[in-house]
């Protein structure tokens, strides 16, 4: 058999014929396997959805109760038969509930990574190496220039700035699902015990995290009247809000952002960021290479990101590799679903 018999790239996303299911479909599908809750991977309107219980809860919090026809929770490690295929979900370390999806069919094992990272994240289960024959990996940061520093060091930068400029409000632009909660948890670990203020778009997901047992300490939603009073506060908001009228009402705001992209200075400057924190929920260059080797896979498919460099490197390491050039993933810049962004 060929790997393409088990998985084939289509405009709608990766399709698995023997299971008759799409993985993270771009457009609604009859049957969908969802790796994690980010909007570019988890879209509403599918028929049957299988995902981890956490991902299903996050999708419900973001899209409402009727986000799909039927849902089937699949806890980490449990094997379920879908069509002719044995399907299981394994921790990807990306955000709460994020999974790699393992597919076994006729003795051939494929793992679709979704988005993942190897660094420890107190809000997500640690990445698990799943041996396979075909590894389908992301490559968001697939260039040797992307090597993420320890997240704790970046949090220390933020706290240093808050100490040096106590009369200003620090507005931290971060994705509302995952990054925001990871930052909160890291801030708590670094000793920040004051309330953390949240833009309205962050509230629903943060509440979902709390319901799923992630303790983030006291969080307060920012109201219009409060903004001028938040000198010395740390406020989390979607990245786009830093550039909106909303951000202007705070006392002399410092524009902070947390993203792996900020490793490259020009990108941080283009975004008008004054304090960049290099905190990423994706594997960096070293982690991508290590993971590919760890899986023992002989064939590597690269889904989205900077695939050219990673495919080239696989060649130098004696591995068969191809870019899938799937469009539609990785555009996390404004991954906040519309109805959340519209919230106050």
């Amino acid at each position: 058999m060929r790997p393409e018999d088990l998985l084939c790239p289509t405009p709608r996303g990766l399709y698995c014929p023997p299971a008759d299911a799409y993985i993270d479909p771009m457009r609604p599908a009859e049957r969908a396997l969802i790796t994690h809750g980010h909007a570019d991977h988890a879209r509403p309107g599918n028929g049957a959805v299988m995902a981890t219980p956490e991902t299903l809860a996050i999708m419900e919090a973001r899209y409402g109760e009727d986000f799909c026809g039927t849902r089937q929770p699949s806890p980490y490690g449990a094997k379920t038969r879908v069509g002719e295929v044995s399907v299981s979900f394994h921790p990807a370390g990306h955000v709460l509930g994020a999974a790699q999806i393992r597919l076994e069919w006729k003795g051939f094992r494929a793992v679709v990574s979704g988005d993942y990272k190897r660094a420890h994240d107190p809000t997500a289960a640690d990445f698990e190496v799943v041996p396979c024959d075909l590894f389908v990996t992301e490559a968001t940061f697939g260039l040797p220039v992307f090597r993420h520093p320890p997240a704790e060091d970046e949090i220390a930068k933020l706290l240093h700035s808050v100490e040096l400029f106590p009369e200003r409000a620090h507005l931290v632009g971060a994705y509302s699902l995952g990054k925001a909660q990871r930052l909160m948890k890291l801030l708590r670990a670094a000793g920040w015990d004051r309330p953390i203020h949240l833009h309205g778009a962050m509230v629903r997901v943060t509440e979902a995290y709390a319901r799923l047992g992630v303790d983030l300490g006291e969080t307060v939603q920012v109201t219009a009247a409060d903004r001028a009073k938040l000198a010395g506060a740390i406020v989390l908001c979607p990245p786009s809000a830093l550039r909106e009228l909303w951000a202007r009402k705070f006392p002399d705001p410092v524009a902070v952002a947390a993203s792996g992209w900020l490793r490259v200075r020009a990108r941080a400057r283009q975004g008008g960021v004054e304090l960049p924190l290099v905190v990423s929920d994706h594997a960096d260059w070293d982690e991508l290479r290590r993971t590919i080797l760890d899986t023992g896979a002989e064939e590597i498919w690269v889904t989205h990101g900077e695939e050219d460099a990673l495919v080239h490197w696989c060649g130098t390491a004696g591995l068969k590799a191809r870019p899938l050039r799937l469009v539609g993933y990785g555009d996390e810049g404004d991954e906040t679903p519309a109805e959340e962004a519209a919230a106050p």
């Binding site: 260039l143 040797p144 220039v145 490259v264 020009a266 900077e306 050219d308 460099a309 080239h312 490197w313």
Partner: peptide, 10 residues
């Protein structure tokens, strides 16, 4: 090759 791709990007 990796240096070229990286320099081009940065």
């Amino acid at each position: 090759v990796l240096f070229g791709l990286s320099y081009d990007y940065v």
